[in-house]
């Protein structure tokens, strides 16, 4: 039976709910799960974590804006963008768990790993407002840089050997195009706005700039899989230059990425903000193991 009202279907008659909890363990029912012979399974597992963690962690950051954005439409927009990224993360983490073959599902990977096991880039995790680290302009600067870089990455992944990653990339690309347009239009509106908005947009770009270099520093796993992120730089630079020109903003001088003994987010070495983010994201799941609602 179908329902006249979507809410009627929530009063469920079987074990599947579309809210949190049961039923989320199968983000990829029926999708071909075989690992292609051309791909090393441990590398593919690591790479799915990298891609999934980028999306999951930025999704968590964007969701922090809910009810705090400068206008209601932005509450809705940022929540929508966060939801797209969460959907990408669910598919990628489910894929990671399958490839690993140790019985970990998306929830186990999202909620039961510690900081050192996360593989996202620092740009996704740093605070850019609303609570600390910046404001709405900073958040738009991060979203512009992140989505421009992801578009370059996903464009190449459309032909990746693993069919699940390739499908997520092809789908995600269309969503990211909306995210980047949204961020770019705000950067232009604020940068080319009042003296106050211009200054805050300029500060926002400077806040995220030190995290750019890491995006174009390929990890050994990425290189072995044939995805050299250094090759994305020219494309991303071109997009940022076009936006900055329209926004009357200057491109800051390059800043070398901060690394610890040569390691950064892709190696599980994170900034101070990451522990706080995970504490909030994982707290309910860890306090009440197995809880569903």
């Amino acid at each position: 039976m179908s329902f006249d009202n979507a809410y009627e279907s929530l009063i469920d008659h079987e074990d599947t709910h579309w809210a949190f909890g049961t039923g989320f363990s199968e983000a990829l029912p029926g999708v071909d799960r075989e690992v292609p012979s051309t791909v090393d399974a441990p590398d593919l597992f690591a790479y799915c974590l990298m891609l999934g963690d980028d999306a999951l962690v930025l999704s968590q950051r964007l969701a922090e804006w809910c009810s705090r954005a400068p206008e209601l439409e932005e509450d809705v927009a940022l929540a929508n963008i966060a939801l797209d990224l969460l959907g990408q993360a669910r598919l990628l983490l489910t894929r990671a768990g399958e490839v690993e073959g140790a019985g970990r599902d998306e929830d186990a990977l999202a909620y039961l790993r510690d900081e050192r096991e996360f593989r996202n880039v620092h740009l996704a995790e740093i605070e850019c407002g609303p609570l600390a680290g910046g404001d709405f302009a900073t958040t738009m600067a991060r979203l512009l840089v992140f989505s421009s870089w992801k578009i370059a990455q996903y464009s190449r992944l459309r032909t990746f050997d693993d069919p699940v990653v390739a499908a997520v990339a092809a789908k995600g690309l269309k969503e990211l195009a909306y995210h980047r347009d949204h961020a770019a239009q705000w950067v232009v509106r604020l940068g080319d706005g009042t003296p106050e908005s211009h200054e805050r947009m300029r500060a926002g770009v400077r806040r995220v700039w030190p995290y750019l270099d890491e995006l174009f520093t390929a990890h050994a796993v990425e290189l072995r899989l044939g995805v050299d992120s250094a090759a994305f730089r020219a494309e991303v630079d071109g997009v940022l230059d076009a936006v900055f020109a329209a926004a009357r903003l200057e491109r800051p001088e390059p800043v070398p990425a901060a690394r610890v003994n040569g390691r950064a987010g892709r190696d599980g070495v994170h900034t101070e903000a990451m522990g706080y983010l995970l504490a909030e994201m994982q707290h309910v799941h860890r306090s009440l193991p197995g809880a569903t609602w």
């Binding site: 599947t16 709910h17 579309w18 797209d84 959907g87 990408q88 598919l91 789908k171 969503e175």
Partner: peptide, 9 residues
């Protein structure tokens, strides 16, 4: 959409 919450339903 990737995050469409209605897929399960």
């Amino acid at each position: 959409y990737s995050g469409c919450p209605a897929v399960q339903e």
